[in-house]
Amino acid sequence: MKLIQFASITKKIALAAFGLFLLLFLPVHLGINLCLLRDDGGEWYRNASHFMGTNYIVKVFEIVLLASVLLHICLAIYLTIENWLARPVRYKVRTKTKTPFMSRYMIWTGGIVACFLVLHFINFYFVKLDLVEGKYSASIEQVDKLFQQKAMKLQQGELNEKEQAALMAQYQAISQISPEKMDKSQKNMVNLTKEEVIQYCGEDFKHVEPDFYTMSKDLFANKTYSLIYLVVFVVLGFHLYHAINSLAQTLGLSHRKYSPIIDWVSIFYAVLVPLGFAIIPLWFMFMN
């Protein structure tokens, strides 16, 4: 069972390094999520999503991040199997050794988080990849603006027949928009399907972005989802509680003076980051 001919420490360092990347990403994600709480009709949140979805540097990082997630999980599973094989006959009496809270259950807490990640991907990331049908929105102002521009062109006789027909269809579609698809602030049309967006807004909206703001709000409106979300972030908290400390150990960062600082950072991180995430469903549950 030595498929991967790397030293055990190399594998562990890799596991830690991928984990470290995820640790760095989490606060970024948290920052974006917290935009949900701003009462601006999702402006900041949409802008942030737009930036994350379109910036080329971010796209590169997206690949690295995805690879990190996958490798972190695969390595963890591989190492766990190796570890189980290292003790083919188990003890009859379960260990009573006192070990740091949760350090023994990293594979299980990690597994729960990974399951949630699948759900999370279905809800959001796969939508972005167009693998799953999501919800879309369009800014009324923008649609208006573009419609006006086309109408100008029509008046100046610059459109051919085909384009004229498209414009007419669009006009009819817009006039038929039901009021409930308009959001309260009247800035956006929301809860559309991708076809509807194209239909209403014209061919220029071909590369329309999913409306993560609406999707998030809708998800958090679901009590069961919110509850699962909360539980998962408690579990993630436990996972992270051991993570930074363990990471420092694996990377050999142990020092009589500085190790206590790492321990504190570890605790702060493990409490603050999941707490930040957990605020959002709680906000939607109790403040809205």
């Binding site: 030595k2 030293a7 055990s8 420490i9 594998k11 562990k12 190492l79 190796e82 570890n83 094989l85 290292a86 003790r87 260990t95 050794t97 006192k98 070990t99 740091p100 350090s103 023994r104 990293m106 051991h242 400390n245 363990s246 150990q249 694996t250």
Partner: peptide, 20 residues
């Protein structure tokens, strides 16, 4: 470390039961 791996010992997961 290479020998340790070859002999079939498990990997460290920083649970520190050894230290305890």
């Amino acid at each position: 470390v290479a020998k340790m791996d070859d002999l079939g010992f498990g990997n460290c997961t920083n649970t520190y039961a050894c230290e305890a």
